[in-house]
Each structure stands twice: as C-alpha cells, then as structure tokens.
Write a protein that binds this DNA or RNA. Structure first.
Length: 349
DNA sequence: GCCACCGGTGGC
DNA sequence: GCCACCGGTGGC
C-alpha cells in the first residue's frame, strides 16, 4: 500500500471467557499493552515485527515513532463497543470522566468473536496514539481525516490537558490484531448506525459491514440500502443519500488472518510455515490454529507499525490460554470444548 | 485476486 | 421464525 497520510487502522481483540467466568480483558486497561504510565514507568518495549522473530526490541519513544511510523500517521484504532458492551464503554468514556490511563473498559462479555478494540487515532505531529472516546467521534474524525489531519490538539476536545508531550494513550500491543481502516468514510445518517463485525480467523473475509436503520433493520449491501430507501422515501426526503453509506471493510494487518479462497476438500496445511495450520474445510485442530490473541498481563510485547502500515502486526502472548472465535456451527471450524489453546510468544508472519 | 452481494444455516 | 454469521460466486 502506498504511503498515505490517510491510512486508518483498527485493532481487534477477542473476548476470552476465563475459567471462572471472568474475561481476560482487564477492567483497568489493555491487558497486554496497557496505557503507558504518564511518568513513563510502564512503557513496554515494543518489538518491531517487521523484522525477524527474536530481535528488534526498540525503545518506545516519540523519536523512534517519528522515524518508524511515518506512514502510520493518522491511523485510527477502533474498539467496537457494540461487541464489548456499549453501555459500559459509553459510561466509562464519558468525556467528562475520561481517564485514558487506566479506565478503558474491557468489560465482561460472553462474546467470543474477535472484536474491534479501541477508537484511537494517531497524531500527525507526534505520532502518538490518542484514544477517541466514542465511535461517533471516531467516525467524525475518519470522515475528514484527509482534509483535517488529527493531532493531539484535536484530542483536547475530550482530554483537555493532552498534548504531544504526553505519552501515547495506547501502544500497538501484544497480540491483538491490527488492521487498516479506510479513511474518509461518510458518517452514517442521523439515526443510522454503521456496524462492523469482525469474522473469525481463517474466514474468507475479514469483516462485514452492516447498517442499522433507525427502525433496527439491518442492511448489508448498497443494493439493500437502495431498496430500503425506495421503500421508505421519508429517509430520502430527510436528505439521506447513498453517498452516506459505505461497505468498505478494514483490512487485517495479519496477512494470514483471512484465508484465500481454497478448493473444497483441501486437507493439507496451507499455512506455509507459521504456527497456524489450516485444514480446510475440515475440522481445525485447536493446537493448529493461531488464535487471535492478546497478551496476558504479566508478559507484554509491544508492537508498532513499521515504515509500511501494511506490515503484519499480530502478537500472541506467551502461555496465555486463548479461545478462538467461536464458530456458530461445528461444521465450520472446531468443537467448542476444544477451543482453548495456547499460542507461542510470537507468531510467524 | 479482490470484493460486492447474497444464499444458507444454526442458534436462539 | 428471525437473524447473525459464514461461505460461495460472479463480475471486475
């Protein structure tokens, strides 16, 4: 992908129901990366996954960021509250109470699908990531990000004290999946909601976009939108147009997350060397699957975007039990009770 | 090879 | 019966 100041990314995690029913997501921050301490005390050294496996730990500072992530400017990182408990997130991210260091809510949920992570955007000046408190604000920023590059100054709208001198709100961490989001996607019309659903790993598609009409009706293509608008002219009379809809989906930065179309009955590994082995279309063996994972709280690996944003950026945690995206039917993947796997510290990319 | 579109289906 | 989700396909 060519360098562009308008690239957007999203970061995807997955709810992981623990043995005792709790989730692996911590209430007080990102479990793997966490929010950097404002005093700089708990910034974990990032590992540049654009290079080979066991090397390349570098200091996480703005200088390095400036050098290495030029192309990463203005990237957005999304967390999908629809999947992770919208009410809790909205409450916790009330701009009046916004506490970026330790209150980002990874709330409990039984959702096992990958879920979009956090609404963040990268400052065009200092390259640090700033959490965006709401999906709506994120969409607003995304809509005009080419013409109106984001900066820490913009973030003062919801975080009055923030400046480029402050540490980044979030680092590209520990196993969550990162993906490039599209810039300049129109905000949905008032009353409509644009929904992003991340598919399970190994699917032929990374994600689906839906629009929820004010009536609650979900529409999944431009054809359906058009049909719906024709059936409900009141929306068009109110100014709703097709240009306000886009079914563009983000792209995973983990190359192998989405599988290519494969011939039926392929039963040999198609992974080509990573620890993810896909047996298609048969039952996946849990130990063979590279889960969409995030690091546990005790061992942290940081990932950041290299010179090319399209570089794959997934990191799996060490010895952290992971649960795969749960397929709705066993025919599609694996048996639920076998879904707990462990993943290696690093995922070959 | 990508992607828009939509059919099928299992869970609820 | 509804719908969220996944897979397949045809057009490009």
């Amino acid at each position: 992908m060519p360098s562009s100041p308008t690239k957007l990314t999203l970061k995807v995690g997955r709810e992981d129901k623990g043995i005792n029913g709790s989730t692996k997501r911590e209430e007080n921050g990102f479990s793997g990366c966490g929010f950097p301490d404002r005093l700089g005390n708990s910034i974990w050294k990032p590992i540049d996954l654009t290079s080979s496996e066991e090397d390349s730990a570098v200091e996480d500072n703005a200088e390095e960021d400036s050098k290495s992530s030029e192309d990463a400017r203005k990237q957005l990182v999304i967390y999908d509250p629809a999947v992770n408990g919208a009410r809790e997130i909205e409450a916790a991210l009330d701009p009046n109470e916004y506490q970026p260091r330790n209150t980002f809510p990874f709330t409990s949920s039984s959702v096992l699908l990958p879920s979009v992570g956090a609404f963040t955007v990268q400052c065009a000046n200092c390259f640090k990531w700033r959490l965006v408190p709401t999906k709506e604000k994120y969409e607003e920023i995304r809509e005009h990000i080419s013409e109106e590059p984001f900066s820490c100054e913009t973030a003062r709208e919801w975080q009055p004290e923030i400046s480029c001198e402050d540490p980044t709100d979030i680092c590209q961490d520990d196993g969550r999946l990162w993906a490039i989001d599209k810039p300049n996607i129109a905000q949905p019309p008032p009353g409509w909601e644009r929904l992003l659903r991340i598919r399970g790993e190994g699917s032929t598609k990374f994600a689906d976009v839906y629009y929820a009409a004010p009536s609650g009706k979900r529409l999944r293509s431009m054809v359906e939108i058009q049909r719906y608008l024709l059936q409900h002219p009141e929306y068009m009379e109110a100014g709703v147009t097709m240009s306000q809809f886009s079914f563009q989906t983000p792209k995973p930065l983990q190359e192998n997350y989405v599988r290519k179309r494969a011939p039926a009955c392929l039963t040999t590994p198609v992974d080509g060397g990573s620890n993810m082995v896909r047996m298609l279309p048969g039952i996946l063996q849990p130990s063979d699957v590279n889960p969409l994972a995030w690091a546990g709280p005790d061992e942290h690996t940081d990932v950041r975007l290299g010179p090319s944003v399209s570089t794959h950026l997934i990191e799996a945690s060490p010895d952290e039990p992971m649960q795969h995206g749960q397929p709705k039917s066993q025919k599609r993947s694996f048996v639920p009770s076998e879904g707990i796997v462990r993943c290696s510290k690093k995922v070959s990319l």
